[in-house]
């Protein structure tokens, strides 16, 4: 029994080391965000914060309004999440409840295209958006996610397991229309699955880099990841402290949000993986 305690001790030390590895880049980032360029260059690594936080902030904000990027990203991600959740639920309901000609063909077709890598149509997508005159707008970021095959697939599978046709029949006898049935019975029934998928959709949109990079041009419309990319070549890059601060601003709020939502996010991932 005693050897077990020793083994456990060693294991906890190893886990602690892994925790440090997971966290130390963020710690370096936060510490360096409070130090001046000269301190970072001359004094190297330290665990103690410096005093240049406000100077760094001023330099940063002079060239790049990261809060604007935050608002932009939030706007896009919320729109994408809402639209994608609603229309995916609608589509899943259509596939799960009704029998119609070509249903299976369409469903399989959708699943097949789920396997296609997102970058395959990038050139054509860019050209289409250009011809439509929608470059440098949020529409190419917000509208296409309405068609999210994977979310539809997941919701349909979920609906098949939880839905009882008798429930719908009862509603119909009460005189409810199909649209109303979806909103009052179908959608609430799918809600747990919708919420799981909404988290992935939100994170995916929030972190998306290549698409906004290709379609957005005006810096005031940049989403956060594109703004981070632009930071590299900007005058902010002359000052390491400001660079670190800029990165920290893009990272820390997410970490704080995770603090509150971690349990929910992790159980969503678990649920998503097992269902698939």
């Amino acid at each position: 029994m005693k050897s077990n305690t020793i083994v456990k001790g060693i294991l906890y030390v190893a886990l602690g080391l892994l925790v440090i590895i997971s966290f130390i880049p963020f710690y370096m980032m936060i510490v360096n965000a409070t130090r001046s360029n000269a301190e970072i260059l001359q004094q190297g690594f330290t665990l103690l914060p410096g005093t240049a936080l406000m100077d760094n902030y001023e330099t940063l904000i002079q060239y790049m309004n990261l809060w604007r990027g935050f608002a932009n990203s939030l706007f896009v991600a919320v729109m994408v999440t809402v639209l994608s959740s609603y229309f995916s639920a609608l589509t899943a309901f259509g596939f799960a409840v009704y029998k119609f000609k070509g249903k299976n063909v369409l469903f399989v077709f959708m699943l097949l295209l789920m396997m296609v890598p997102g970058q395959l149509g990038l050139i054509g997508f860019y050209d289409l958006i250009r011809v439509m005159g929608l470059l440098d707008t949020y529409i190419p970021l917000i509208i296409p996610p309405i068609a999210a095959p994977f979310v539809v697939f997941f919701l349909r599978q979920y609906l098949m397991t939880v839905m009882h046709p008798s429930l719908l029949e009862a509603a119909r006898i009460d005189g409810a229309g199909e649209i109303r049935i979806f909103h009052q019975i179908g959608f609430p029934m799918m809600m747990p699955a919708v919420a799981t998928m909404a988290i992935f959709t939100f994170i995916g949109s929030w972190n998306n880099y290549i698409l906004p990079l290709v379609v957005l041009f005006s810096p005031e419309k940049y989403t956060l990841p594109v703004m981070m990319g632009a930071l590299r070549g900007s005058q902010v890059a002359e000052n390491l402290g400001s660079m670190y601060l800029g990165i920290a601003i893009s990272v820390v709020p997410i970490m704080v949000a995770f603090l509150f939502l971690s349990k929910y996010i992790i159980s969503s991932i678990s649920a998503g993986a097992v269902k698939e």
Binding site: L90, G94, F125, L128, I146
Partner: peptide
């Protein structure tokens, strides 16, 4: 059953415009 088509129509409209067509155009 016609509601099946109505419910999946928005999806396929967007899917064809912004996914299938760009893939073919590419």
């Amino acid at each position: 059953d016609k509601f099946g088509y109505i419910f999946i129509a928005p999806f396929f409209l967007v899917f064809i415009t912004f996914t299938i067509y760009p893939i073919l155009l590419t």
